[in-house]
Simulated assay, not measured.
Amino acid sequence: MTTNTTPPIPMDALRTLPTPELGMLLLERLGKETRFLPQNITAEARIAFKGESDEADLLDRVCEAWAWVESKALVSQVGTKTSDFRRVTTDGRKLVADPSALVRLAAADRLAGPMHPALEGHVRTNFHLGQYEIACFAAMKEVEVAVRDTAGLGHSEIGVNLMRTAFKPHNNGAGGGPLADAGAEGGEQVAMAALFAGAIGVFKNPTSHRTVTFDDPMEAAEVIQLADLLLRLVEKAKVREIKTENE
């Protein structure tokens, strides 16, 4: 059975695409209207899918697409109305105008949870403003500052050399760097120093010397996540250092 009602999302798409893509199709449809009632979406879907063998599944997929759109704050109540009318938000309209913004939305989800306090504020703000180079540089600079301060090293120590000095492995009882874990296996100590030196060398040093284009929001989010991990490892090293001093 066929009807003349246009479904909010094409049936072929509902049968094949994942929820985020369905949400984008629904958002594009909703963006053509100044305001709308959510119940009309499912009402149109019921009419359009009536008689289809997978009618219930199609309706469920429409509801899932709506849930995705709503969960991302891409729709909101109409502020000037006291009814159930909804509108596509400013971010939602930007997303419709630039489908590649879906990648930015997914990247933002990577940083949705709490981060190390040093990264909250300026790093997160610059990321959300699309200033990825600034955000990544600032994140790795926080790592550099934390390592220097925790290790008690001077300001002349910078970049990769700072990391190698702070995390210099202990060698057969010989003193290592102030942040190196003397209780860890030798190879692990070497790897930890390499981890910090590599992260700073790749993601902080180049942006200190030249313009580096971070045009991939997902990559930028992952660089910030790496900085978050490194900062937490520095905190563990600080706790370990204090414990050693008190023994």
Rank of each mutant, 00 (worst) to 15 (best):
140 M>V: 09
135 A>Q: 02
154 G>R: 05
89 T>Y: 09
69 V>S: 11
125 T>S: 11
168 K>L: 09
58 L>D: 03
149 D>A: 07
115 M>A: 15
71 S>V: 07
51 G>F: 00
164 R>M: 09
88 V>D: 03
98 D>M: 05
93 R>N: 08
150 T>D: 01
70 E>H: 13
165 T>F: 00
130 G>T: 00
68 W>F: 15
103 V>T: 08
122 H>A: 15
130 G>W: 04
106 A>T: 11
144 E>P: 06
157 E>T: 05
145 V>D: 10
78 V>I: 12
156 S>K: 10
61 R>Q: 14
81 K>Y: 09
155 H>S: 13
157 E>P: 00
94 K>E: 13
158 I>C: 01
146 A>M: 02
151 A>T: 05
121 G>C: 04
105 L>N: 04
72 K>R: 15
102 L>A: 15
140 M>D: 12
81 K>S: 13
56 A>H: 04
94 K>S: 02
161 N>P: 01
79 G>F: 04
126 N>K: 05
59 L>A: 09
54 D>C: 01
158 I>L: 09
112 A>Q: 11
79 G>N: 07
110 R>T: 15
109 D>R: 09
116 H>Q: 07
112 A>G: 15
158 I>P: 00
155 H>K: 11
164 R>I: 07
57 D>R: 09
51 G>K: 02
161 N>G: 09
65 A>Y: 08
90 T>Q: 07
152 G>F: 01
141 K>M: 05
51 G>V: 03
127 F>M: 04
168 K>H: 12
128 H>F: 10
75 V>T: 15
139 A>P: 12
115 M>S: 15
134 I>Q: 10
148 R>C: 02
134 I>T: 15
103 V>Y: 05
139 A>D: 11
81 K>C: 05
139 A>V: 06
117 P>F: 08
90 T>Y: 13
87 R>A: 15
